[in-house]
């Protein structure tokens, strides 16, 4: 800062006679526009404004013509054509009016700046006093200060009355409020793994090494679940992959949860619940496209990158008598994102 050259000649020498601050010079002189000085220029500006309004009229007509001649139709192409023509028509129709109005204002309307006085926001002392007096008189008339019981009655009645609205609303807005539903899915002992969305059962022998299957429980839309199958599907979706069993690292207590290198994990991310859908065959990594949590399918679906903390829950599987893949049980922990009472 010390080598600040620009101001080395500026040491203030005993302020002298100059005023402490500069004075506002007041409004600068008005500059006349072309249209103010030259009638021909004003006429020209008027014509330009008229042309812009005419553009708007043409745009409106064009939009109506497009509406009748180019309905949106059955294909994406015809829909796009219709959209483009209608959009251009609407653009001209609106923009013409706007441009004309602004051009008119800028070229032909008076551009003499004017000043208007401001006044302090607060009211003057007499008004304030009168307002205070009015409030005091009102309070005195009501007698609220003297009648304590009345005050209590008003407060209690007004405070309680909203319950008539709140209780019925809160009581029912959350359905049955049975949040323990988070713990259970449709998977149970012997339920077949079927392909999503076809519903075809999967024979273990048909699953090649390196392939990935999007799986739902068999009978998803049947029985008592039929009316709320989407909620069940949202919890039960599974991603199943097969890899060389030698690549697989399995925990001691989960050795029998896989079947000849086939492993099945919940497809719902343990971060905030997106479907984890991108499987990379070489690394056995499964990537959530929403927030990039990455799970290692060869090692208990543990998190190798990203904002998730917990591994994906594993679905214990085996095969039935006909060689189709089935679940051994439900998931052994709640699937999906963490919540407060998850482990309770």
């Amino acid at each position: 800062m010390s080598n600040e050259q620009s101001s080395t000649d500026l040491t203030v020498s005993g302020a002298g006679t100059s005023p402490a601050a500069f004075q506002d010079p007041g409004m600068p002189p008005h500059q006349e526009r072309m249209a103010d000085k030259d009638p021909a220029a004003a006429k020209r500006a008027e014509r330009q404004t008229v042309v812009l309004f005419a553009v708007s009229v043409l745009g409106t007509i064009g939009m109506l013509v497009a509406y009748f001649l180019f309905p949106s139709g059955d294909t994406v192409e015809s829909m796009r054509t219709s959209n483009l023509l209608l959009g251009l028509g609407l653009f001209l129709s609106m923009f013409g009016i706007g441009a004309a109005a602004v051009h008119w204002a800028k070229t032909l309307m008076s551009d003499h700046e004017q000043a208007e006085a401001r006044h302090p926001q607060k009211s003057d002392p007499e008004t304030r006093e009168a307002a205070l007096a009015a409030l005091e008189a009102g309070a005195k008339d009501s007698g609220i200060g003297r009648r304590g019981l009345l005050k209590g009655a008003v407060v209690s009645a007004v405070a309680l009355a909203p319950l008539t609205f709140a209780v019925p609303l809160v009581g029912q807005v959350g359905g049955d409020w049975n949040v323990s539903n988070f713990r259970h899915t449709l998977w149970e002992r012997g339920r077949r793994l079927v392909r999503d969305p076809s519903g075809d059962p999967i024979r273990a022998a048909d699953v090649t090494i390196g392939s990935a299957y999007h799986v739902i429980p068999d009978g998803l839309r049947e029985g008592e679940h039929a009316s709320h199958w989407i909620e069940e599907k949202a919890k039960a979706v599974v991603l199943m992959v097969r890899m060389d069993p030698r690549d697989l690292t399995e925990a001691e207590d989960r050795r029998d949860w896989s079947y000849e290198g086939i492993v099945a994990y919940s497809k719902i991310c343990t971060h905030v619940g997106c479907p984890v859908a991108l499987y990379e065959r070489q690394t056995h990594h499964l990537l959530c496209p929403c927030h990039q949590s990455t799970f290692d399918m060869a090692d208990g679906a543990k998190v190798v990158f990203g904002p998730a903390k917990r591994p994906l829950p594993q679905l214990p599987i085996t095969v039935d008598d006909e060689g189709y893949l089935v679940a051994q049980s439900d998931f052994t922990e709640p699937i999906g994102p963490s919540y407060w009472e998850r482990l309770k």
């Binding site: 609407l90 653009f91 001209l92 129709s93 609106m94 923009f95 013409g96 009016i97 706007g98 441009a99 004309a100 109005a101 602004v102 008119w104 204002a105």
Partner: peptide, 9 residues
């Protein structure tokens, strides 16, 4: 006029 310009754009 500016409303119509915004709408047009």
């Amino acid at each position: 006029g500016f409303f119509f310009i915004v709408f047009g754009v």
